[in-house]
Design a binder for these strands. Sequence first.
DNA 1: GCTATATATATCCAGATGATATATATCGGG
DNA 2: CCCGATATATATCATCTGGATATATATAGC
Lengths: 182, 182
Amino acid sequence: MSTRKFCLAILSNGEATGYEIRKAAQEGQYSHFIEAGYGSIYPSLAKMEQEGLVVFREETSVGKPSRKIYSMTPAGRSAFVQELKETPVEDLFRSPFLLLALNSQWVGSDFISKEIDRREEHLEQKIEGMRHQLELCCNPASAWTLEYGITTLSASLSYLKTNRSKLEQIAGECHAPVLAAE
Amino acid sequence: MSTRKFCLAILSNGEATGYEIRKAAQEGQYSHFIEAGYGSIYPSLAKMEQEGLVVFREETSVGKPSRKIYSMTPAGRSAFVQELKETPVEDLFRSPFLLLALNSQWVGSDFISKEIDRREEHLEQKIEGMRHQLELCCNPASAWTLEYGITTLSASLSYLKTNRSKLEQIAGECHAPVLAAE
DNA sequence: GCTATATATATCCAGATGATATATATCGGG
DNA sequence: CCCGATATATATCATCTGGATATATATAGC
């Protein structure tokens, strides 16, 4: 139950709405290793509210959409620490790109080139974003985590730049002509 | 629909049972960037069979559990290539470990040390396994993909070894005494 | 001979995913 | 000044996934 843990992590730094929690999953430091949408956050908050791990106050300003501002209870805080101390599950890595790489013989070198371009660009943007966050950040744990990310993504990017020609060659000597004839 | 793509990838190298496809997701080269259990593989195969992308012949030896040996149809092969050519979705990376790192202030340095040990060991084993697969492998695309994995995991391991003391220190100056007093 | 493991298929429920609906505020351009 | 785009905010829905479990037999080791 990872969404739970993530929501509690956000709330451990202060109160937040469901909307803000999702934004953290999309933009903040957490976004580099967390995936969570409304469909998991709202049900998770509702359940934790029932269990007494979080409470909310409703802010119904005139006209504005009403906000449910959640905060952690003491029970929530100890549940958070307990969940952190549960031996963390292994990292999950799923890569449609590597599935493509491993089967690049079927798609032709032009397509592979284009995809590698896209991926290099994407990695550069992510690294740049992390460098930016690192400059702004004051928390040492955040800095450690960001540097971890920068290091691994840089290694990934560097491998790609150095070895892309090999993969393009593999895709070049491929079955594409056969497929084109179909 | 990534399970579909993965099943087709396995079947593109020859026929296989659902059981064997799952083993490929757990042990083979694919295991490093694919997640798929029975609960997604069997329904996926059944659906693709209905759609005419795969066919199976049933092997009912005396006594033995019956095997459904699946293979790809021409329609399946072109569906596979088409799915490969769909701009691949971004890689998915989810890390309970980094969630812990970012919140290490709450768990104490002993716990963090133990978790880093576990992680270093795990990374070493994975890298060793990939090196082994690389020696056995003859397919150049497999070699490329395995080297990609070895490179990134090595960078990850190296960062961890160099910087673990920083994180342990952060967890040392932490709120753990407060929590211990609760 | 017995137990543990490997082979093999299948299903179940809880939870996640991604899309979509609803509503209002705000901000910039025409 | 109004229109459309974007941002804030909550919520739900169908579908898919994940992890566990049930069932059954063969094999290998003790």
